[in-house]
């Protein structure tokens, strides 16, 4: 523990978060919000700050696989957690099916809600590979979009669900030249 001397003495805490597989450790004030840790300590600005009042869900990230509003958690409160942000969705240069779905089905206009919306969708599809439209709409009801009217967002998630189910059903093609 170190102390920082300003007007009052404030104890800081050593917090380690694994964000998209990479550990980040910092001495932080208890009042540092998770979203500020992600954006300012880790430098990952894909997680947006929207309303800052627990309403809009723009700052949604996955904390140990579960969607959370990162403006409403203290970094110290989730010390040791695995965090996933939008930067962690793309793997090996390939978009996550949910990202692909948002592209294919025009699931965004201004894009501000999109990172949070996609992470909520990823968590939904990991838990429920074949959600009904109603289940999708319930799942994203804590993420506000002021552009799309949600129709294309729902389609994007349905697109991703289909892609993910098909990928599960069909094993990846063997590399060219490999023994079959």
């Amino acid at each position: 523990m170190t102390t920082q001397t300003t007007q009052t003495t404030q104890t800081t805490h050593k917090v380690t978060l694994t964000i998209n597989g990479q550990p980040y450790t910092a001495e932080v004030e208890p009042r540092l919000l998770l979203v500020h840790f992600i954006r300012e300590v880790a430098g990952l600005t894909g997680t947006h700050i929207g309303c800052d009042t627990t309403s809009c869900g723009a700052c949604t990230v996955l904390v140990n696989g579960v969607p959370a509003k990162s403006c409403t958690l203290l970094a110290v409160q989730v010390d040791g957690a695995e965090i996933r942000t939008v930067e962690g969705l793309e793997q090996d240069g390939k978009l996550h099916p949910v990202q692909d779905g948002f592209v294919q089905e025009h699931g965004l206009q201004c894009g501000f809600c999109t990172p949070g919306m996609m992470l909520t969708a990823v968590a939904l599809l990991e838990r429920n590979p074949q959600p009904t439209e109603d289940e999708i709409r319930r799942a994203i009801s804590g993420n506000l979009c002021r552009c799309t009217g949600y129709v294309n967002i729902v389609k994007s998630i349905q697109y991703a669900a289909k892609q993910m189910r098909e990928a599960q059903a069909t094993p990846a093609p063997a590399p060219v030249g490999a023994e079959v």
Binding site: T54, G57, P67, A68, K69, T72, L73, T120, S141, G142
Partner: peptide, 9 residues
């Protein structure tokens, strides 16, 4: 209560 994301915590 609130919304599904808030309810996770």
């Amino acid at each position: 209560v609130a919304d599904p994301i808030v309810r996770n915590f």
